[in-house]
Amino acid sequence: MYNRILIATDGTELSDKAVRAGIELAALSGASVVALKVVSHYPRSYMEGTDLQDIKEAKRIEEQWTEQAQVLLGGIKNLGQEHKVSVTPEVVHSDLVAESIVETAKKRDCDLIVMASHGRKGLQRLLLGSETQHVLTHSHIPVLVLR
């Protein structure tokens, strides 16, 4: 059915449900998994929505976010081992989350993307956008969205 599944996570409770479902699907189909966490860059100007930060402090914060991502992906790797699924963790640094998901799936030769939808509606969706919607409209491989 599937050979390699990319599971995108942001560490939220809803995303954790998608991770579990993706691992279970990989176990059923004998697929391997690429577990992806996209880490955004720390804003460095008023225009990006924060106070000006010392470059060293911004770098320290980004390193902390990267470490947290690695811990999160380590947990997914352990879950994969419990289900006898090979999991390759991958951290990507980018402010373009959806583009990073699609590009990583293509680069890693994945044949399915699994991710969560946060179910935003109305004005909130318009203002915040939807990474899931962007992946759905720009991916050339199937996307399984879980709620």
Rank of each mutant, 00 (worst) to 15 (best):
25 L>P: 04
36 L>Y: 06
102 V>D: 11
108 R>I: 03
64 Q>P: 01
51 D>E: 14
15 S>Y: 04
100 S>C: 05
87 V>C: 05
37 K>N: 13
51 D>C: 06
137 T>G: 00
106 K>W: 03
101 I>F: 11
105 A>K: 14
9 T>V: 10
143 V>T: 07
77 K>L: 01
55 I>H: 11
9 T>L: 08
74 G>S: 15
111 D>R: 03
128 L>S: 11
142 P>S: 12
110 C>Y: 01
25 L>T: 13
8 A>R: 04
103 E>K: 15
59 K>M: 08
108 R>K: 15
17 K>W: 07
122 G>Y: 09
127 L>Q: 07
18 A>G: 00
101 I>E: 03
73 L>S: 08
12 T>D: 01
17 K>V: 12
71 V>N: 14
67 E>I: 12
10 D>S: 06
100 S>F: 12
131 E>I: 15
135 V>E: 11
94 S>K: 11
74 G>Y: 00
60 R>A: 15
12 T>V: 04
37 K>H: 15
125 R>W: 05
15 S>T: 05
56 K>I: 10
146 L>S: 00
107 K>P: 00
144 L>R: 07
75 G>R: 09
65 W>Y: 14
21 A>H: 14
143 V>C: 11
11 G>A: 04
31 A>N: 04
86 S>K: 14
13 E>C: 01
122 G>M: 04
26 A>K: 01
21 A>C: 08
102 V>R: 15
97 V>Q: 07
125 R>L: 09
122 G>R: 12
15 S>L: 03
53 Q>A: 15
15 S>F: 09
65 W>S: 12
63 E>H: 09
63 E>V: 07
108 R>L: 06
41 H>M: 13
59 K>L: 11
114 V>A: 04
99 E>Y: 09
13 E>F: 10
27 A>Y: 03
66 T>L: 04
131 E>M: 13
137 T>K: 13
76 I>M: 13
45 S>K: 07
93 H>V: 14
143 V>R: 05
107 K>C: 00
88 T>Y: 08
90 E>W: 06
25 L>F: 04
19 V>D: 03
24 E>H: 02
132 T>M: 08
121 K>Y: 08
87 V>Y: 08
127 L>F: 07
63 E>G: 13
72 L>A: 04
144 L>T: 05
20 R>K: 12
62 E>G: 12
111 D>W: 06
112 L>F: 01
22 G>Y: 01
68 Q>E: 15
59 K>Y: 00
56 K>T: 14
89 P>L: 08
142 P>L: 09
51 D>S: 13
115 M>V: 03
75 G>F: 02
123 L>R: 12
136 L>N: 01
38 V>E: 00
96 L>F: 14
140 H>R: 13
73 L>E: 05
126 L>R: 15
21 A>D: 09
56 K>A: 15
142 P>G: 01
123 L>T: 06
132 T>S: 03
48 E>G: 01
33 V>G: 04
64 Q>I: 12
43 P>G: 06
81 Q>I: 02
34 V>Y: 03
74 G>I: 00
58 A>N: 01
90 E>I: 14
75 G>Q: 13
121 K>D: 02
108 R>W: 03
